[in-house]
Design a binder for these strands. Structure first.
Lengths: 166, 166
DNA sequence: ATTGAAAATCACAGCCG
DNA sequence: CGGCTGTGATTTTCAAT
């Protein structure tokens, strides 16, 4: 069971995901409420932890990190998983680390400049970590991030608890 | 070769990634410039496409979608990849689709409520897509998104072109 | 949630290095 | 060209309803 949002909250989240710096005024007009009411809803969403933060969507390709890599790791179980993860979180270029089901243990998401950069990441930063047994890297040659994803996911969430009917 | 940022641009991106709604005034104070100068830099970063948009970081778990799934797809090559991808982009719960190297063709990232929800996603939405041959789903049982990732990546990017030296 | 007024902030202009 | 300061216009905040 999770949080309850009404249609206005959902609309606000959608609008803010499109433009996180939109003024309260424009948001208020868009949802048909007054400015203070919108301000109040946004701070409540933030306090409830539904809004984690307002972030900036950076085009990493333009900053010289065009390539997305998924690095699958198998660990020997001589090290605690927490130890391996804490060493991984020190590694630059890594943006996410997951413990996963299936034939591997960890799935790491990283962003690299090119193959030289990837070589350094693998050889100098990943391989030396104790407890890592096998490394398998998959490169994305094209990525489609769905900008409407938030909108789509949210339309689904109105006054919902997120569970499914069977 | 890519874009050039100076130290102030980098600092602004870091600050905005922490709080995308920060006032120009507070940003100006933090970087030691005046308000208009900061406004100018932000609009320049936006025009250059480095800032794609200001977004909101939503805690999907609190909205009933706690589980991250990676779905690996193998396609038979009877359908154009564009066709398969365009059908995938209609599917709710999917937030990213990549064409990848390795033993699979597509890697899809999705967020689901529970196993019932996942079952429906797979059986009703993914399997029926023509041209999909094999589906292998990996569930994340724990995910660590690195909040400092942006900061770390950016510290690296000052006045850089993003390529590596060998 | 609304209104209305006070306080803070922003955008725009013209001006300097 | 990139930045600063001024001013008027907007926006945000706060109180009372």
């Amino acid at each position: 069971m999770s949080e309850t949002l009404d249609a206005v909250d959902v609309r606000l989240l959608q609008l803010l995901d499109l433009d996180g710096r939109a003024s309260l005024r424009s948001l208020a007009e868009a949802v048909g409420l007054s400015g203070p009411a919108v301000a109040d809803r946004i701070s409540r969403l933030t306090e409830r932890g539904i809004i984690r933060r307002f972030a900036v969507d950076i085009d990493w390709a333009r900053l010289g990190l065009p390539t997305l890599a998924h690095i699958a790791l198998l660990t020997d179980k001589t090290q605690h998983i927490e130890t391996v993860m804490s060493r991984l979180r020190e590694v630059e270029r890594i943006e996410e680390i997951s413990i996963v089901t299936g034939s591997i243990d960890l799935l790491v998401r990283a962003r690299v400049a090119d193959l030289v950069d990837l070589r350094r990441l693998l050889v100098e930063r990943i391989w030396p970590i104790e407890g890592i047994q096998r490394v398998e890297t998959t490169l994305a040659v094209e990525t489609l991030a769905l900008p409407d994803f938030t909108a789509a996911l949210l339309t689904d969430r109105t006054t919902s608890d997120g569970s499914s009917r069977s």
